[in-house]
Amino acid sequence: MSEQKHTPGPWVARQVGGLGFPGQIGYAIDFNEDQEQVVDFVYEQADAMLIAQAPSLLADLITAAGTLRHYEALHRAKNTEESTAKAEVNAQLAERFEKTIAKARGEQ
Results as ranks from 00 to 15, higher is better:
9 G>N: 13
68 L>T: 03
92 Q>K: 14
9 G>S: 11
64 A>K: 14
85 A>I: 05
37 Q>W: 10
22 P>L: 01
14 R>N: 08
82 E>I: 10
46 A>P: 02
64 A>F: 07
90 N>S: 15
81 E>Y: 04
106 G>Q: 06
58 L>E: 10
66 G>P: 11
27 Y>N: 01
94 A>D: 06
31 F>Y: 14
105 R>S: 08
103 K>Y: 14
94 A>V: 05
105 R>G: 05
39 V>D: 07
2 S>K: 10
82 E>M: 09
53 Q>S: 15
48 A>Q: 04
27 Y>I: 01
72 E>Q: 15
107 E>W: 13
82 E>N: 05
68 L>F: 13
12 V>M: 07
48 A>G: 14
90 N>V: 00
9 G>P: 06
59 A>L: 08
29 I>Y: 01
32 N>W: 04
19 L>H: 13
8 P>W: 08
74 L>P: 00
40 D>R: 11
34 D>Q: 15
87 A>G: 07
54 A>P: 01
18 G>H: 03
16 V>A: 07
60 D>E: 15
92 Q>N: 15
21 F>I: 14
30 D>G: 00
38 V>M: 08
24 Q>R: 13
59 A>M: 11
17 G>C: 13
96 R>D: 12
100 T>S: 13
34 D>F: 13
98 E>H: 06
69 R>Q: 05
80 T>I: 05
31 F>T: 10
50 L>M: 10
71 Y>P: 02
80 T>H: 09
13 A>Q: 05
76 R>V: 12
100 T>L: 15
71 Y>H: 12
55 P>S: 00
22 P>N: 05
57 L>N: 15
23 G>P: 07
22 P>M: 10
15 Q>F: 03
103 K>R: 14
49 M>H: 07
8 P>H: 01
37 Q>N: 14
108 Q>P: 09
63 T>P: 04
102 A>G: 00
98 E>R: 06
89 V>L: 12
